Amino acid sequence: MPTLIDHLIRLTDHRDREPLDLSLAKALLDLTTIQRVVIARLMVDEEQKRWLDKVTLDAGGGGKVVDPLRVNLKRLPRLDDEPDRVRCLRDNAEIEVAWAGEDGPRIYYHPLLDEVRDDERGVLEIHASGTLDDGARQIIAQVHHVYRNMHVLLAYSDHDPLTGLLNRKSLDDTFYSAMLEELSGNSSAMASSDPAAVAGDAQVAASERRHRVPPNYWLATISVDHFQLLNDKHGHLLMEENTLLITRIMNNTFRTHDRLYRLGGDRFAVMFHCPEESLAQNLLERLRNSIERFSFPQISRATVSIGFTRIQADDTPDAALERTEQAIDYAQKNGRNQVCSHAGLLRRGFFGMVQRAGTVDVFD
């Protein structure tokens, strides 16, 4: 049986935040006599907050891990359907609920994280057969504390400091893990006694993940038209303000579980799940139209050129970004302020005409 030190080492070994939830749940089950761990996160669907049980693990070995990109939000419980979770977040404190008599089973609710944005809020839910003793509560508190510290450290390293969006490093680090299907479909990993197999250890080869990439994930790159000219004319500080406004429009356009990135300067990106190309095009057109119609301070109007591509099973971040950049190059040479699908360019026979205007700038 892994010790407390073993689990703390595994928690601190991670280099991105995706595996942390599962590692936390596995550690608590191994180190205490609790019956179940649920890690629930708040999601937003058209301004309606809902609960996603992202990780559910049972002491007997069952459970599941849900990929937020693949879930149907409208089927999730609404915020008020889970009043004890709401009370936990509202009071920012542990809530203990005895649901079958004073001596019966308990559910303990803990705020998952502290001082985070709304789109990262969640609850650590612990099911026990009775009242937890002081030793178990101390172990839970210690492991949870390490988890929170790691989350904060990794958040600093994978977010753009100006906009709060994910950065290019994060895109490289999480390109495959962002698209993992529910681990409940991987019975061998879920039944394994090796915590690294269940927790999606960082040493898992990227080639294994590629074979599990679903066919309906999309990556889009968004380029602000004439960004350098606007920067030279109006100044860096004003363009930073307008960059924040573009970030707000992006956050309002996409769902909370879609991955939004700032690649640096005039470049943004988004990774999202969508069943077909036409719907992906419509979503990106909505973003383009919202930015075009927005009244920005002093510059009044800004537009964007957007290129997007379907993520392929053997893709790498660089290969996918290369295709989105080719689509943007075509858009910029043909009027700007438009959304172009890389596959659409291929079908129309324009690929041979696309010339690279440059590479994606990466800013720390």
Rank of each mutant, 00 (worst) to 15 (best):
D81T: 00
C274M: 13
R286S: 13
L28P: 01
T56C: 12
R90T: 14
W51F: 06
I39K: 03
R310Y: 09
S305H: 08
F308E: 04
Y147G: 04
K49S: 08
T253E: 14
F296C: 08
S278H: 10
Q203H: 15
R293H: 12
E94P: 07
D80K: 07
E240G: 05
D266I: 02
L345W: 03
A93C: 10
S341W: 08
E120P: 00
Y217N: 06
A313G: 07
A191Q: 14
G104Q: 07
G164H: 04
S170P: 04
L42H: 02
A343T: 06
H257D: 15
G264V: 06
K333W: 05
Q35F: 11
A191G: 11
H273I: 01
T247V: 12
S23I: 10
G265H: 07
H159T: 15
R10L: 13
M1E: 11
H342I: 00
R36Q: 13
N72V: 05
A100V: 01
I5M: 14
S187T: 09
D173R: 12
L263D: 03
Q48M: 12
T247E: 13
A320T: 06
L8D: 04
A206H: 08
Q138F: 10
D67I: 02
L180A: 07
R209K: 11
H151G: 05
V55K: 01
D133C: 05
T174A: 10
Q138R: 10
Y108C: 05
A357E: 15
T316M: 09
P161N: 00
F272H: 01
E285A: 06
R356H: 14
R15F: 15
E94T: 10
L42Q: 02
S157H: 09
E46T: 13
P111V: 03
A40L: 04
D201P: 03
R267T: 13
E241P: 02
A320G: 04
A320W: 01
R41L: 08
L162N: 09
D314Y: 12
W99M: 04
P105Q: 00
R323G: 02
D58C: 09
L11M: 04
I222K: 01
G344T: 09
D81F: 12
D103C: 07
R36W: 01
F363A: 10
T309E: 03
A155V: 00
L346F: 12
A98W: 09
L8E: 07
K54A: 14
E96G: 08
R347I: 08
S23E: 12
P105L: 05
S170C: 14
R259V: 11
F268G: 04
R259P: 05
F308I: 02
D361Y: 08
P214C: 00
M239D: 04
H236L: 12
V360L: 13
S177E: 15
L229G: 09
R212K: 09
L73P: 03
T32L: 04
G164F: 03
G104V: 06
L284S: 03
P317Y: 07
A319S: 15
Q228Y: 10
I299Y: 05
N242W: 02
R262S: 07
P2S: 14
E276T: 06
A331Y: 09
G61Y: 11
H234P: 02
A178M: 14
D81S: 07
R121L: 11
S295V: 11
A98Y: 11
Y147V: 00
A191W: 11
H110G: 00
D118K: 04
A136C: 10
N92F: 10
Q326S: 14
D329W: 05
